[in-house]
Design a protein around this nucleic acid. Structure first.
Ligand SMILES: [Mn+2]
Ligand SMILES: [Mn+2]
Ligand SMILES: [Zn+2]
Ligand SMILES: [Zn+2]
Lengths: 152, 152
DNA sequence: CCGTTATTGCGAATAATTCGCAGTAGCGGG
DNA sequence: CCCGCTACTGCGAATTATTCGCAATAACGG
């Protein structure tokens, strides 16, 4: 019988890589989080379990996990990247410019767009990042209230 | 009668900013290009016309132009940003992982996705970046040929 | 248990972008 | 056309994010 850990090791072996404690840890931290973590935060959380892990290893591990398709990298408008483990199907992101909140959503229309582009240009689509930005319902409220306050 | 230059100055004045020679130049370089330029390339091209312009000013100008909605910033998978002037309607990007070629395309489906999200979450959508990646028709060909060669 | 070598930790290096500051120049008003 | 205010610029240094070089370590196939 296969434990999940064995399965993960097989994934690494198939990719000609070794499953190290650090790599397992980084992946665990990512899988334990519902947020999109940046490298520094990931590093801090990993250090709780392994105080010796280095930031360089976190970056190197993220690159490996990304290459293996276990992790996705996102640019959420800040000067650095955020990461999340690949769970279910693909999904997309809305980022509020006011509070930074990220709303995840899915839609079959992206697949439809991919299909269109494949037909029209003959490209092979492997990844799709849709990144909407603006203001969440809450921040719109806040802004309206501020406008009223200013008018007084 | 309004010359385009006057119009541009009005845009800046309305934003409480000054229209400087450097800003006009950076915008001209961007508008003269069909590609997505990075800051360094933009800097080099601007220096042809104004050898004294500084890289810091290029970055500061890009920030201003972006804020004014005249320029868009893109992350095309490299470690730095690319910029393009905002011309007609919105459009989206496919980046080939093989050759780096960027294919621009448009589709009403993105607006439809925005609409859906607005209805479902009450958000105000101000920007949409759709970034597909994979292999262009040409690079797929090249890859297939290499596979055959390897099989010999 | 061994040997090979992929991987790690560390600190230094790089790349991209931003900042601080003193000097310059855009532009509204007279 | 000239002035004055202050936004903007060039310069070099500082920051931030990420990558590298290298010697020591540990994964794992045999
Ligand atoms: Mn997500
Ligand atoms: Mn474009
Ligand atoms: Zn918000
Ligand atoms: Zn290509």
């Amino acid at each position: 019988m296969d434990t999940p850990r064995d399965h993960l090791r097989d994934l690494f072996r198939a990719a000609g890589r070794r499953l190290t404690a650090q790599r397992r840890l980084v992946l665990e931290v990512l899988e334990a989080s519902t947020e999109h973590l940046d490298a520094e935060t990931l590093y801090e959380r990993a250090r709780v379990h392994d105080p010796n892990i280095s930031l360089a290893t976190v970056y190197r591990t993220l690159a490996v996990l990304k290459e293996m398709g276990l992790v996705e990298e996102h640019r959420l408008g800040e000067g650095h990247s955020h990461y999340e483990s690949v769970r279910g199907g693909p999904h997309y992101h809305f980022i509020c410019q006011g509070c930074g909140r990220v709303i995840e959503f899915d839609t079959p229309l992206v697949a439809q767009i991919e299909q269109e582009l494949r037909d029209r240009e003959g490209v092979l689509v492997l990844g799709a990042h849709l990144h909407l930005s603006g203001y969440c319902a809450q921040c719109q409220q806040t802004m309206h209230q501020q406008e009223e306050a200013n008018r007084q």
